[in-house]
Lab assay of single mutants.
Amino acid sequence: MTEYKLVVVGAGGVGKSALTIQLIQNHFVDEYDPTIEDSYRKQVVIDGETCLLDILDTAGQEEYSAMRDQYMRTGEGFLCVFAINNTKSFEDIHHYREQIKRVKDSEDVPMVLVGNKCDLPSRTVDTKQAQDLARSYGIPFIETSAKTRQGVDDAFYTLVREIRKHKEKMSKDGKKKKKKSKTKCVIM
């Protein structure tokens, strides 16, 4: 069974824990209790493949930012979460993405942009803004509501699919490099 290491990042209060708990335990946590770091595991079937999701729910508070490099190193894919009623959390996505790329030393890291709290009427981040940002990053965008469960499975499952595509691409690139290195030079 394939294991996928997913990391949920975003500013404090955007609903990272609520999304994760909704996926794992099928219930909505409405009281806000700032996370330092929590880890969850769940076995699911995605596109006919049974897999184990190892999900790291991270601290959004700035005082825990020193811990970010460590979990970013171990993560295979990242859910970059903002709240649709919090423009600052949307603007912060850029910083999370840049930090992930720096730590992973790669421009090509599996990510999904997630606009959470889409059940709320007080939207300050337009869907088109988020779609445009995701398009500019070359990553999928999904709106979710941890409260109603809308888009929750889709967000995590899409990230797994992005990781699969990335692994497939990397193995193809690896095979191309191996083929090239088999060419021999004969000096007579």
Results as ranks from 00 to 15, higher is better:
residue 51 C to E: 13
residue 154 D to E: 10
residue 84 I to D: 15
residue 21 I to Q: 03
residue 35 T to S: 01
residue 167 K to M: 08
residue 173 D to C: 11
residue 40 Y to C: 00
residue 100 I to D: 08
residue 104 K to E: 03
residue 82 F to G: 12
residue 18 A to E: 00
residue 17 S to C: 00
residue 121 P to G: 11
residue 76 E to H: 05
residue 180 K to L: 03
residue 152 V to L: 10
residue 139 I to D: 03
residue 110 P to Q: 02
residue 106 S to C: 08
residue 137 Y to E: 07
residue 130 A to T: 10
residue 162 E to V: 03
residue 105 D to Y: 06
residue 52 L to S: 13
residue 118 C to I: 09
residue 63 E to G: 10
residue 49 E to M: 14
residue 103 V to P: 03
residue 18 A to H: 02
residue 107 E to P: 09
residue 8 V to E: 06
residue 88 K to T: 14
residue 119 D to N: 13
residue 52 L to K: 05
residue 78 F to Y: 09
residue 56 L to E: 15
residue 34 P to H: 02
residue 67 M to F: 09
residue 90 F to V: 09
residue 17 S to D: 00
residue 92 D to G: 05
residue 128 K to M: 06
residue 72 M to Q: 08
residue 163 I to H: 01
residue 125 V to P: 07
residue 17 S to E: 00
residue 175 K to L: 07
residue 97 R to C: 15
residue 184 K to M: 03
residue 56 L to H: 03
residue 73 R to D: 13
residue 105 D to N: 04
residue 105 D to R: 06
residue 3 E to Q: 08
residue 144 T to S: 11
residue 86 N to H: 04
residue 4 Y to F: 12
residue 40 Y to D: 00
residue 54 D to T: 01
residue 122 S to I: 06
residue 115 G to A: 09
residue 107 E to D: 10
residue 91 E to A: 08
residue 80 C to D: 03
residue 14 V to L: 14
residue 110 P to L: 03
residue 186 V to D: 15
residue 18 A to F: 00
residue 114 V to K: 00
residue 20 T to Q: 02
residue 36 I to R: 01
residue 183 T to N: 09
residue 74 T to Q: 13
residue 127 T to F: 05
residue 26 N to L: 03
residue 35 T to W: 00
residue 66 A to R: 08
residue 63 E to I: 03
residue 175 K to T: 06
residue 39 S to H: 00
residue 114 V to A: 03
residue 166 H to V: 08
residue 100 I to E: 03
residue 132 D to L: 04
residue 132 D to Q: 05
residue 139 I to M: 04
residue 166 H to C: 09
residue 125 V to F: 07
residue 8 V to K: 03
residue 187 I to F: 08
residue 19 L to F: 12
residue 30 D to I: 06
residue 72 M to R: 03
residue 114 V to F: 14
residue 25 Q to A: 15
residue 43 Q to G: 11
residue 37 E to T: 00
residue 44 V to P: 08
residue 116 N to E: 15
residue 7 V to M: 10
residue 132 D to S: 05
residue 50 T to F: 04
residue 4 Y to N: 11
residue 177 K to I: 12
residue 180 K to E: 03
residue 45 V to N: 14
residue 64 Y to Q: 14
residue 129 Q to M: 08
residue 26 N to P: 09
residue 72 M to V: 09
residue 109 V to Y: 04
residue 31 E to V: 05
residue 176 K to Y: 13
residue 149 R to E: 02
residue 187 I to W: 09
residue 182 K to R: 04
residue 128 K to R: 06
residue 40 Y to F: 06
residue 118 C to H: 11
residue 120 L to K: 14
residue 80 C to M: 08
residue 97 R to I: 15
residue 10 G to H: 01
residue 139 I to H: 05
residue 23 L to C: 10
residue 61 Q to P: 07
residue 120 L to Y: 15
residue 145 S to L: 04
residue 116 N to Y: 00
residue 30 D to C: 10
residue 88 K to M: 05
residue 17 S to M: 00
residue 56 L to G: 14
residue 182 K to E: 13
residue 188 M to C: 09
residue 11 A to G: 08
residue 87 T to V: 14
residue 98 E to N: 13
residue 175 K to R: 09
residue 139 I to V: 07
residue 41 R to L: 03
residue 133 L to W: 10
residue 151 G to N: 13
residue 169 K to M: 07
residue 28 F to M: 04
residue 69 D to T: 06
residue 70 Q to G: 09
residue 175 K to A: 12
residue 52 L to D: 15
residue 22 Q to N: 08
residue 110 P to C: 04
residue 86 N to T: 15
residue 69 D to M: 03
residue 53 L to T: 05
residue 59 A to I: 00
residue 79 L to K: 02
residue 78 F to E: 00
residue 74 T to R: 04
residue 105 D to H: 11
residue 115 G to I: 12
residue 152 V to R: 14
residue 65 S to K: 04
residue 29 V to M: 11
residue 130 A to I: 14
residue 117 K to S: 14
residue 128 K to D: 06
residue 184 K to V: 13
residue 120 L to P: 15
residue 51 C to W: 10
residue 157 Y to N: 12
residue 156 F to Q: 02
residue 76 E to Y: 14
residue 163 I to T: 04
residue 46 I to C: 11
residue 85 N to Y: 12
residue 64 Y to D: 14
residue 176 K to C: 08
residue 150 Q to W: 04
residue 177 K to C: 10
residue 53 L to Q: 03
residue 60 G to T: 01
residue 116 N to Q: 14
residue 14 V to M: 13
residue 77 G to I: 12
residue 99 Q to G: 03
residue 29 V to P: 10
residue 173 D to Q: 03
residue 62 E to C: 06
residue 145 S to Y: 09
residue 15 G to S: 01
residue 49 E to Q: 11
residue 67 M to A: 04
residue 119 D to E: 08
residue 128 K to S: 06
residue 141 F to E: 01
residue 44 V to W: 06
residue 64 Y to V: 06
residue 154 D to L: 05
residue 72 M to P: 06
residue 108 D to A: 09
residue 26 N to Q: 12
residue 118 C to F: 07
residue 14 V to I: 12
residue 139 I to W: 05
residue 21 I to S: 02
residue 44 V to Q: 12
residue 111 M to S: 02
residue 12 G to P: 05
residue 54 D to E: 09
residue 187 I to N: 12
residue 150 Q to D: 10
residue 157 Y to I: 09
residue 109 V to R: 03
residue 56 L to V: 11
residue 59 A to P: 13
residue 137 Y to H: 08
residue 14 V to Y: 15
residue 61 Q to S: 13
residue 162 E to G: 08
residue 132 D to I: 05
residue 82 F to C: 10
residue 91 E to R: 10
residue 128 K to Q: 07
residue 186 V to C: 13
residue 122 S to G: 10
residue 123 R to G: 12
residue 36 I to C: 02
residue 36 I to Y: 10
residue 101 K to L: 11
residue 10 G to L: 00
residue 3 E to F: 04
residue 33 D to L: 02
residue 178 K to M: 05
residue 4 Y to C: 10
residue 95 H to W: 06
residue 181 S to H: 14
residue 108 D to E: 07
residue 71 Y to F: 11
residue 147 K to E: 08
residue 169 K to W: 03
residue 57 D to W: 00
residue 84 I to W: 12
residue 43 Q to R: 12
residue 48 G to D: 07
residue 33 D to F: 01
residue 176 K to V: 13
residue 26 N to S: 13
residue 67 M to I: 05
residue 9 V to R: 08
residue 107 E to L: 08
residue 62 E to N: 08
residue 71 Y to K: 02
residue 185 C to F: 06
residue 114 V to N: 00
residue 125 V to S: 07
residue 188 M to Y: 14
residue 36 I to N: 02
residue 51 C to V: 14
residue 183 T to G: 05
residue 133 L to S: 04
residue 27 H to K: 12
residue 164 R to Q: 14
residue 150 Q to C: 09
residue 152 V to S: 13
residue 139 I to N: 04
residue 116 N to T: 15
residue 95 H to F: 15
residue 21 I to R: 01
residue 49 E to C: 05
residue 124 T to Q: 08
residue 122 S to Y: 07
residue 83 A to T: 12
residue 24 I to D: 01
residue 13 G to Y: 07
residue 128 K to Y: 04
residue 113 L to R: 00
residue 169 K to C: 08
residue 167 K to Q: 05
residue 148 T to R: 13
residue 27 H to S: 13
residue 132 D to V: 05
residue 50 T to H: 12
residue 75 G to L: 03
residue 161 R to S: 13
residue 33 D to Q: 02
residue 110 P to N: 05
residue 188 M to T: 11
residue 170 M to E: 11
residue 159 L to D: 01
residue 169 K to D: 08
residue 176 K to D: 15
residue 168 E to C: 04
residue 15 G to R: 00
residue 101 K to R: 11
residue 99 Q to A: 14
residue 139 I to F: 05
residue 127 T to K: 05
residue 11 A to S: 09
residue 180 K to N: 10
residue 185 C to H: 11
residue 154 D to I: 04
residue 20 T to Y: 00
residue 56 L to F: 04
residue 34 P to A: 06
residue 16 K to Y: 01
residue 23 L to T: 15
residue 173 D to G: 13
residue 97 R to D: 14
residue 129 Q to Y: 14
residue 71 Y to D: 15
residue 6 L to N: 02
residue 13 G to P: 12
residue 95 H to L: 08
residue 165 K to T: 15
residue 58 T to S: 09
residue 137 Y to A: 05
residue 171 S to G: 03
residue 19 L to M: 14
residue 19 L to C: 15
residue 51 C to G: 10
residue 172 K to I: 11
residue 141 F to G: 03
residue 112 V to L: 10
residue 70 Q to V: 12
residue 53 L to W: 03
residue 23 L to I: 10
residue 2 T to R: 13
residue 136 S to T: 05
residue 138 G to A: 06
